[in-house]
Write a protein that binds this DNA or RNA. Sequence first.
DNA 1: ATCGCGGCGTAATGTCGTAACATAAGCGTC
DNA 2: GACGCTTATGTTACGACATTACGCCGCGAT
Lengths: 131, 131
Amino acid sequence: MTAHADLTRNQSLVLDRLEKAEAPLSAYAILDQLREEGLRAPLQVYRALDKLLDMGLAHRLESLNAFVACARPNCHASGLIAFAICEKCGQVAEFSDDIVHERLHDWAHREGFVVSRTTMEIRGSCRACAA
Amino acid sequence: MTAHADLTRNQSLVLDRLEKAEAPLSAYAILDQLREEGLRAPLQVYRALDKLLDMGLAHRLESLNAFVACARPNCHASGLIAFAICEKCGQVAEFSDDIVHERLHDWAHREGFVVSRTTMEIRGSCRACAA
DNA sequence: ATCGCGGCGTAATGTCGTAACATAAGCGTC
DNA sequence: GACGCTTATGTTACGACATTACGCCGCGAT
């Protein structure tokens, strides 16, 4: 388990659950797991998640309304992350592609579009589940 | 206004509102607009939306939990569509890029991942709003 | 005719996310 | 130390998005 020494208690609890999960967790699923730790309201989880997202330690999957821990140990940002989400087993693969990043960047530049955030999510079946 | 002759009443009503809107609409926003037409429950809207999505006449923006009419007259599918969503004015640009499509397809092929659906959404400011 | 199917209507419920308000701990400044 | 600032926290209530369950109707195919 990585250190994350600078996290607050709630943030650590939330990140810990995300890291132990084998599939994305909804905020409410996290909350349910943390009731025994004393958490009682969704906002406590959402606040922790916001910080974790800011720090790049977790990601939000928009198409699932759920969250995952960042796959790379201490990624702290990086270009543009894409997610491949298996609809059978729930596993999420995280990858990035510079060419894709560049193409989208070029498009934005041509259009004068100022990008603040990009989400890219592929739904389907992973190799194991596609059999 | 395009013909869409084969649509049911509810589907036509919903598509009509999406086409007239200048920004993505949530299902409940559509419902509110259609109360005077007799619609009363969310499900009536969601059912129509499901069909419109199937037919490729509308798209769902996952990062917004909202819907837009397809930008192209009678697109009926096409490769991989990306959306650029202006967070100021709400306008959505729809585009596609074969190279991006190819890169993602290649990644999936290498991983043995069977794709069912891909979402790509860029958030930011359009040219007009970035000034 | 009747069976199956697709669309429709309604009510209730489930899931996800936030507003508004209050409290407490840390920290620098005067 | 007293003050003001900032950040994290806790609690209640609410708003926003989506689905489940049930039943009816119309229509084409057998």
